[in-house]
Amino acid sequence: MPHKVSLSRLKLTDFRNYASAGLQLDGRHVVLVGDNGAGKTNLMEAVSFLSPGRGMRRATYGDVTRVGAHGGFTIFAALDGMDGEVEIGTGVDGNDESTSRRLRINGTPAKTADELTDHLRLLWLTPSMDGLFTGGSSERRRFLDRLVLSLDPAHGRRASDFERAMRSRNKLLDERRFDPSWLSGIEEQMATLGIAMAMARQEMLGLLVRLIEETRETSPFPSASLDLAGFMDGQFDRPAVDLEDEYAAQLAESRYRDAAAGRTLEGPHRADLLVRHRDKRMEAARCSTGEQKALLVGLIMAHARLVANLTGHAPVLLLDEIAAHLDENRRAALFDLIDALGGQAFMTGTDRSMFSALDDRAQFFTVADGKIFE
């Protein structure tokens, strides 16, 4: 069984609706129960800040900092991590959005937030993701890239560097500055980064599809068929250098078209994740709401298993309102899957009885008005 990464302490200051709060944990799963708006999701969001980025809500620091607080927010966590016991502290000093997030690992300033992935991997599922299959392609790309990032921590840096280079190219085209040498340099950089991004997505998706096929008969959730479209379709069996040359040539040929459009029309930023209900042979977007939820839960759990298999460390799962739309049998099956994964999961709900199948496998906390009771 993969090594169990688990939090033992969590402390917050001026985070969302918490002036201060703390949790003492014993390594079991964590269930947070309370009315809507009590602050359950805020606690899980704090845990999500133990990964690179802006957490599971992608919030601005001003939104995260408690209303009325003037010194920013802090999050502290102690955990048994992938590299042993570790203490992580993060936060910001003020509400200015230009302020960068501070990060300390065992009291030492971290060079980049990517260092967090040396200690834990986080996956989350929130109600806002319920429209993933029916919404725009940008949300599916973001979801896909989070999956890739949990296996390949360098993916986030490549994506941000690609976006930066693309913005520079768009600016030159908008200003009608068609300097061939300048544009060619930027386009070569975009080609290198863009093909690396696309290949990382393809590799992760291939691994995930194989795992889904292997567990198809035993999973309590419907199996998803997955594919990518919208960029270099069907060409990723060719050497990366050939794909880079071809993409750079596409960018060079499309300068005037992109200038007229006001954006870059070809690239990994245009790709889309295609999801189908395998047994029904139906696009996920056409499935019922319940089927879409079951597909999404199954996809997250399959990816969690993939992370555990490839890293040797089970991810920490953040599952917001996970039991609300599942019947009793499927809830029990999900809890067994979570437990068998070998990691720690944080779950929220309004009704404690919905988690009764977990029994003593979880610690239960009641959350009310920004306070936590065990």
Rank of each mutant, 00 (worst) to 15 (best):
R216H: 13
A198L: 04
R238F: 01
P222Y: 05
Q202I: 11
T215H: 14
D233A: 00
L205V: 02
G230H: 07
A196D: 06
Y247Q: 09
M190N: 04
E213C: 07
A200I: 04
G194A: 07
L208W: 00
I212R: 15
D233W: 01
V241F: 12
R216A: 15
A249V: 05
T218I: 15
A249G: 08
M190C: 07
M197L: 07
Q235T: 10
A191L: 06
T192Q: 08
R216Y: 11
G234Q: 09
T192F: 06
Q250S: 14
A248Y: 05
E214M: 13
E214T: 14
S225I: 10
L226W: 02
T215P: 12
S223N: 12
Q235M: 10
D227Y: 09
E246I: 09
L251V: 00
T218R: 15
G234K: 08
V241N: 13
D227F: 08
E217D: 15
T215Y: 13
Q202P: 10
V209L: 12
E203A: 11
F231I: 05
P222M: 02
P239Q: 03
E244G: 01
G234C: 08
E214V: 14
A240E: 04
M190H: 03
L228K: 04
Q250F: 11
L226C: 00
A240I: 00
D242F: 01
A200D: 08
E217S: 15
L228E: 07
I195S: 03
D242E: 10
L228C: 04
L205N: 03
M204K: 09
L243S: 04
D227T: 10
D242G: 03
D242A: 02
S225D: 14
M199C: 14
G230K: 09
D233E: 06
L208E: 07
P220H: 07
L205T: 00
D242W: 00
G206K: 01
I212K: 14
P222G: 00
F236Y: 08
P239A: 04
S225F: 11
F221A: 07
E203Y: 12
A248K: 07
A224V: 00
E244P: 02
A252P: 10
M199E: 15
D242N: 03
A252D: 11
M232R: 09
E213L: 06
I212S: 15
Y247E: 09
A248C: 05
M232A: 09
Q202A: 13
A224T: 00
P239R: 01
I212F: 12
L207M: 15
A198T: 06
A252W: 09
A198C: 07
A191P: 00
A198Q: 07
